[in-house]
Amino acid sequence: MNIISLEPVDQDRRSMFLDYLLLADESDEVVKQYINDGEMFSICYEEIKVGVVLFTFHSSHIVKLKNIAIVEEYQGRGLGKLVVKEAFNFYQTKGFHKMTVGTANSSIANLAFYQKVGFRMVEIKKDFFKNYPRPIYENGIRALDMVMFEKNLLPGE
């Protein structure tokens, strides 16, 4: 039995998950720009809603992990890793070839997490976070650049 489940979130219910999305993206304004894009799933652990994940699509073969957030009391249990690996399988069976994700240069834990689940660094978008309404600091570092990762979903890669 799977300890997590991903439940689709309809467009009319997405605003109920704004606080979850803000755990991973500090800008209310930015989150509101993408909250209705793509496919959103609530993350349930032992039938308790513990987070949310949102995927967007930029081509017929590439899916982007736009936001994944798990409430603090459930972090560190491997749930995020299970969600991402389930997403790899789900989108591979839907015909996607690649999954991408980006995180801030200051998000040390995220940089490690994405590599641990199989993503590879492919690009740095310099000054990406300068467009945010307010500066973001994590780990004593200002978030300025977006580090982009990708994971091939094709069998054998």
Rank of each mutant, 00 (worst) to 15 (best):
M1T: 07
M1S: 11
N2I: 03
N2C: 07
I3C: 06
S5F: 00
L6D: 07
L6G: 09
P8H: 06
V9F: 08
D10Q: 15
Q11A: 11
Q11L: 14
D12I: 14
M16G: 11
F17K: 08
L18T: 11
L18K: 07
L22R: 06
L23S: 00
A24D: 03
D25L: 05
S27I: 06
E29Q: 12
V31C: 03
Q33L: 11
I35M: 11
N36C: 04
D37Y: 09
G38R: 12
G38Q: 12
E39K: 15
M40R: 14
F41S: 13
F41L: 13
F41C: 13
F41G: 13
S42W: 03
Y45P: 10
Y45Q: 11
E47G: 10
E47M: 12
G51E: 06
G51Q: 08
V53E: 01
L54Q: 15
L54M: 15
L54D: 14
L54C: 13
F55D: 05
T56I: 15
T56N: 15
F57H: 14
S59K: 14
S59L: 10
S60I: 05
S60K: 14
H61N: 11
H61I: 13
V63W: 04
K64A: 04
K64Q: 13
K64I: 04
L65T: 10
L65G: 07
L65N: 09
K66I: 00
N67E: 03
N67G: 04
I68R: 05
I68E: 02
I70W: 08
V71E: 11
Y74E: 12
Y74V: 09
Q75G: 00
R77D: 00
L79V: 09
L79E: 06
G80F: 10
L82V: 05
L82I: 11
V83E: 03
V84F: 04
E86F: 09
E86I: 02
A87N: 07
N89T: 11
T93D: 01
K94H: 02
K94D: 00
K94W: 00
G95Q: 06
G95V: 01
H97S: 12
M99K: 10
M99D: 03
T100G: 07
V101T: 07
A104I: 01
N105M: 06
S106Y: 02
I108D: 04
N110W: 01
L111F: 03
F113D: 01
F113V: 07
Y114D: 02
Q115V: 01
K116F: 01
K116L: 01
F119N: 08
R120E: 04
V122G: 05
I124C: 11
K125G: 02
D127Q: 14
F128C: 08
K130F: 08
K130H: 09
Y132F: 14
Y132Q: 12
P133G: 02
I136H: 07
I136D: 02
Y137W: 09
Y137L: 06
E138C: 01
I141Q: 09
I141P: 04
A143F: 04
L144G: 07
D145I: 05
D145V: 02
V147T: 01
F149S: 07
F149W: 02
F149N: 05
N152F: 05
N152L: 12
L153S: 12
P155W: 04
P155A: 10
P155H: 06
G156Y: 02
E157Q: 15
